[in-house]
Design a protein around this nucleic acid. Structure first.
Length: 466
RNA sequence: GGGUCCGUAGGGUAGCUUGGUCGAUCCUUUGGGCUUUGGGAGCCUGAGACUCCGGUUCAAAUCCGGGCGGACCCA
């Protein structure tokens, strides 16, 4: 894509996803079409989490003394917190923070709720808005001051082993989630200097956007006992001992929607995965003065037939030329368009067009129509997923020469390299190349570090990031 | 955190250097009408803007200062 950032910015408004003209920097409006995409996307993650987690809803405000309790954590966020300091004309006794994330809202309550090993594990999640006073320039859905769709899960466990298992469970859930969206991902363990403030370690999901920059779309943190100590979250174990819990948390945000748009889109517009597309099928009647009623009636029948199969269907009966409708729905990324005119009515067929392919397919108007459409939708999903993984595979390049990194990154790649894992060397690599180390993908025990004489311990990733 | 640049209808733009000709250009959008409708139609007729506050001046879209908003570069 010629200029991805520009394309992305334009498509958000053209496709009626968000309107970022709201007069506060970094805060936008979810428009109806975008809201539907967001809704369907969230339904997928909720369904995955609900198997084993419970949804809750915490207040948006956090008292200053709670937020400040965990020193490392607050240090990571202090420059980004919005404060409420007044009630009407009166200064508040204690300033209240608009949550930048909810650890310090939730964990004091965990301390009250968790008394015994019977109360464990505790696995709650919520989908809420959070606020961060971003100082860098904001970008709709990607870097915002109000994260409108922050899915955060918080778990507490009796043992370290259980919390480690939970980390893997989250990884599996996220994998399934992104697989359903057809989005390829890179999983890595963030370097020490880039982990979540207060965490033992952070696992992250990144996607490579069409311009080669990576976007962090999901994180999973092993919090160890840091917060348990701070907020005194203890339970009475089977042996009668009082012990601190082990905790994890995991987050997803609006950025998931940004990746759906960015990864699958192309010049002409969006290509939405059927699972989250507001309309899975859009029927476009070809209307002439003669036979208009018959064509519209048949479109209505088809709509009902498909809806009975559980599909989301709309008819575009606007009084404009068909060509304009094709372009509009291509912009909006509806997975399948069905064209139906008088000629088709005579032949008892409809013409189907997949958004991800140019080809037009004739389908008979009979009882099998819905099944055939479902087949086409499945093929679309598979195809989108395949393209996304192909793109990622083509854009991850390995090198053993640090001097090659800038050239590779500038030609829109994520670079894989061997690293000894020492922080100083890592920071040296970042400084020398000018890019960010995403993290380590796996442990290895052969070869040398790209930037030192040390033995390589890890396969790591470096990239230009959002 | 430091720096550079920018702000004209809903969106994109011309005009700004050298203040007056701006009653502000063009494309898109949009109301009404006619005519059309199998891949962004055409014609007629309307609508719609100088980011905000202050300053300089006889006169400000144009010059100066600040706020707000945006883009980019460096750390």
């Amino acid at each position: 894509m010629e200029n991805f950032d520009e394309w992305f910015h334009n498509i958000l408004e053209q496709a009626n996803i968000t309107d970022s003209r709201y007069p506060i920097k970094g805060m936008a409006i979810w428009m109806p079409y975008g809201f539907q995409i967001r809704k369907h996307t969230m339904e997928i993650i909720k369904k995955l989490l609900d198997k084993d987690h419970e949804e809750v809803l915490f207040p948006m405000l956090i008292p200053e003394n709670e937020l400040a309790k965990e020193g490392i954590h607050v240090k990571g966020f202090e420059d980004e917190v919005y404060w409420i300091t007044k009630g009407g004309q009166k200064d508040l006794n204690e300033p209240l923070a608009l949550r930048p994330t909810s650890e310090t809202a939730i964990y004091p309550m965990y301390a009250l709720w968790i008394r015994s090993h019977i109360d464990l594990p505790k696995k709650y999640y919520q989908i809420v808005n959070t606020f961060r006073y971003e100082t860098k320039h904001t970008r709709p859905l990607i870097r915002v001051r109000e994260i409108t769709t922050f899915k955060e899960a918080h778990t507490a466990h009796a043992t370290k082993e259980e919390s480690d298992v939970q980390i893997n469970d989250f990884i599996e859930i996220y994998k399934e989630f992104f697989d359903e969206l057809g989005i390829a991902y890179l999983i890595s363990k963030r370097p020490e200097w880039d982990k979540f403030p207060g965490a033992d370690y952070t696992m992250a999901f990144d996607v490579i956007m069409p311009n080669g920059k990576t976007l962090q779309i999901g994180t999973i943190h092993n919090l160890g006992q840091t917060f348990a100590k701070t907020f005194d979250i203890k339970f009475e174990d089977k042996d009668g001992q009082h012990k601190l819990v082990y905790q994890t948390c995991a987050g997803l945000s609006d950025r998931v929607i940004a990746s759906i748009i960015g990864i699958h889109g192309e010049e002409k517009g969006l290509i939405l995965p059927p699972k989250v597309s507001p309309n899975q099928v859009t029927i476009i009647p070809i209307l002439f003065k003669k036979g208009k009623e018959e064509v519209l009636a048949k479109c209505g029948e088809i709509k009902t037939q498909l809806e009975n199969k559980g599909l989301r269907v709309n008819i575009d009966d606007r009084d404009i030329r068909p060509g304009k409708k094709f372009f509009d729905w291509e912009l909006k990324g509806t997975p399948i368009k069905l064209e139906l005119g008088p000629r088709d009515l005579e032949n008892n067929i409809t013409i189907a067009m997949r958004r991800d392919e140019e080809e037009k397919i004739e389908i008979a108007l009979d009882d099998n129509l819905a099944d055939k459409i479902c087949e086409l939708l499945d093929k679309t999903s598979e195809n989108l997923s395949k393209s996304s993984w192909n793109f990622q595979n083509e854009h991850v390049k390995f090198t053993e020469n640090i001097d090659e990194i800038p050239e590779l990154v500038e030609s829109e790649n994520v670079v894989k390299f061997k690293w000894c894992g020492i922080e100083e060397i890592g920071k040296e690599i970042e400084e020398k190349t000018g890019y960010d180390i995403l993290g380590i993908q796996e442990e290895i025990n052969e070869g040398k570090c790209i930037a030192s004489d040390n033995d390589a311990k890890y396969m790591a990733l470096i990239a230009k990031t959002y």
